[in-house]
Amino acid sequence: MRKLKITPILLAMSFAFGFGTEVSAQDFTGKQIIEKVYNRSVGEDQTSDLAMTLTNRNGDQRIRKIKQFTKDMGDVEKRIMFFLSPADVKNTSFMSWTYDSDKSDDQWIYLPALKKTKRISSDSKSDYFMGSDFTYDDLGDRKLEDDTHKLLREETIDGKECYVVESVSNDEDYMYSKTMVWVNKSNFIGVKKEFFDEDEDLLKILTIKEVKEISGIWVITNSEMKNVQKNHKTSITLKNVQINSGISASKFSERMMTRGL
């Protein structure tokens, strides 16, 4: 059976994009802009159907479908995902607990053929998720202090006035030499992000294609990551998004991982 690489992902695709309150026109530093992006409201819990489409350079496509549940439980955010397709990963489930503190995430995977719940290491940020163009790090939560942020300029993109902020990791071993994000000035939601490799060459471009307001929360429902060096891409769409539906805390347990949907 193919082994899954799993990541704590996709709470409305929280990677460096989000929603902040309306702000008056004023000068912000790069750090303040990113802080507003990170400090957005995502609701108490969320349910969604996720489809990930991997397209190679020949245009051939592979599709992965996932049902996911997340819940903010104060100092820990719990997440459980059930893999629906392709066939060889069907009924596989993944659970992660992400802490507000510096503690590493706890992650488990349930493999239905082996009937076993295994603890897996969270130390795999540069791995790609299910063969896609998104790494664990691209999809996970990143802390404000992990990078040094610098406002480069203001620019209009697709008719939206944006701040352009460069972020350089404080960790020399980080997989990207830098990232650049275009942040919509009107609502502090990311519009585009570029990732540069260790040689400072452009590696990937993330484009946000659709943002919807659901139950008062802005949710990115369609995005695309393109690897410009290898000419392949991955799109992620969210459907049937429910916010604050009152998911029980018992949903995030080994019992549910093994039972499935």
């Binding site: 897996i120 290491s121 969270s122």
Partner: peptide, 9 residues
């Protein structure tokens, strides 16, 4: 048992 220590399970 299983546990994670500095990225090693």
């Amino acid at each position: 048992f299983s546990t994670e220590i500095f990225g090693v399970v």
